[in-house]
Structures are given as C-alpha cells and as structure tokens.
C-alpha cells in the first residue's frame, strides 16, 4: 500500500525521531510513504476565522498534491493532521472557502476536498490492523506500563476530526496493547498540555503538565507516548516533580519491531 506522506516542519528539525522511526516502521510493515514534493508548512494552527483564505492555501496545495497522485495523505504530527483535516473539510463543504481558494490557486483541476487525510495511527489500524501488528512484534514490551497522551489536536472537535471518542479515546491504548505493553488509562490523557502558549507563558504549561503527569502517575503509568512534537516538548520541558518519561509513538513502535 502506498500513501502520500506529509512530515511537516518540526519533523524535519526537532522531531526527527518521530519522522525517522515512522518511515522505518512503515517500510518494515510493507507500507510505502511517498513524501509530498516541495511541501510547505501547513500553517501550524487551523485558521478559525472564516474569512482567512491565504493561511489555508499551503494546506490546500498539499492536499491537492496527494489528490493528483490518487493517494490518501498520511501525517504523524497531531497539529499538521488537525490543520490538514479541517482545511480539507472546508474545501469539501464550505462553498466560500473552496471558491476563493480555487480562484487563487487556479489549479488545472479545482480541488473540492477529495483527499482522504489519515493519521499514521489510523493507517496502522486500517491498513495493517492491530491484530496483525501484534504478530509482527519481535520484541514485545511486556511488563511496561505505558500511558497514551492524546492531547487536543487529533481528537477535537470530534465531528471534524472523526478520529476517536474525544472523551474516552482508545486507539493509542489498542496500539500499546498490540506492542505487548500494558496500556494505562488515565483521565487527563485528552487535556491540553499548554500548547503554543508555552512560548510566552511557560508557567501555564507547567500547571497543565503537572496535572497530566500527576494523573498518569496516579493511574500507574511509568512512561507516556504521544504523536505531537509540541506535546512532547511541554511534557518534557515543563514537567515538575511527577515527571514520567515521554517518547513518540513511532519510537515505541520501532522498539517493538526491533528497529531501534
């Protein structure tokens, strides 16, 4: 199975591990990820203002590139996935945005949200299947107590992201179990880490992370995994006394597949 792949800026710099192990594991699982050529930054935040067109255009270009190859588009970074999914929804269902974006870009074939945008985890579940994945594990992570940290961007708003139950998600827990570890469910796994506000107000992020770490520890998690570089940064840089080690989902996958 071949997919278009959008790494995003951070995966080329600070989050190289998320990208590197993501590709390695995909290859090992028989999945081809074809990086979009000359991709641009997705915009990092989804423009909530209805009249912002220009800030949606770089995402539209990426979505269109995947459409032109007839491939579904895979992302790993939660924020990129959020932006691409929602811009894609706009192009499919918002006449105003679709018309203006197409007028601006003047593509050979106008774009109307045809591309399927999938998160790496959804691809694993759909294309490989967690039962199959379990069989491919060479170094089961037996005995490890791992908590999933979902954060906000892949879950909410659920009617747009269509990823999982936004209040009681299970997909990363299924993933952890497939790798042979114990999935620790803790209630703060879908609470915000402090996001970009950390740039100006690290104290706010510290308060958020303290709550998350306390919750994870309270339920017995000994390590956390996440798909988002900004979440990982906040969870590591702003953790207090309750700090629990955090890694990327793809690192854990690579470990279990014997690739790390």
């Amino acid at each position: 199975m071949t997919y278009s792949y959008y790494p995003g800026c951070t995966l080329k710099t600070k989050a190289k591990d998320l990208d590197h192990y993501g590709r390695l594991c995909a290859e090992a699982l028989g999945i081809t990820l074809e990086e979009i050529e000359e991709w641009q930054c997705c915009g990092a935040v989804y423009p909530l203002a209805q009249d912002e067109i220009a800030t949606r255009l770089s995402s539209v270009r990426t979505l269109m590139a995947a459409r032109d190859k007839g491939q579904a588009l895979i992302t790993l970074c939660s924020a990129c996935h959020h932006v691409l999914t929602r811009v894609n929804n706009d192009m499919a269902s918002n006449d105003n945005i679709r018309t203006k974006a197409n007028n601006y870009l003047q593509p050979a074939v106008p774009y109307a949200g045809e591309t399927r945008v999938l998160h790496y985890l959804q691809m694993l579940k759909e294309c490989v299947g967690f039962d199959e994945l379990k069989k491919k594990v060479v170094k089961p992570l037996t005995g490890r107590k791992i908590g999933a940290y979902y954060g906000c961007m892949i879950l909410r708003p659920a009617n747009e992201m269509a990823f999982d139950d936004p209040e009681n998600p299970t997909i990363i827990e299924e993933f952890i179990k497939a790798l042979g570890a114990e999935a620790v469910v803790y209630p703060m796994r879908n609470e915000c880490c402090g996001g970009y506000v950390t740039v100006k107000d690290a104290d706010l992020a510290k308060k958020r992370v303290a709550k998350i770490m306390h919750s994870a520890k309270d339920k017995g998690a000994e390590e956390l995994i996440t798909a988002c570089p900004l979440c990982l940064y906040n969870l590591q840089a702003n953790a207090g006394a309750d700090a629990v080690p955090v890694t990327y989902i793809t690192e854990l996958l690579a470990e279990a597949l014997g690739l790390k």
């Binding site: 600070k14 930054c41 924020a79 996001g195 740039v199």
Partner: peptide, 11 residues
C-alpha cells in the same frame, strides 16, 4: 533550544 518549530510558528 528544544522548543519545536511548530510552537514558534503557532505563537
């Protein structure tokens, strides 16, 4: 020096 690019772009 660990701050990810996405944080700065978002901010």
């Amino acid at each position: 020096d660990q701050i990810p690019q996405q944080a700065l772009v978002s901010a």
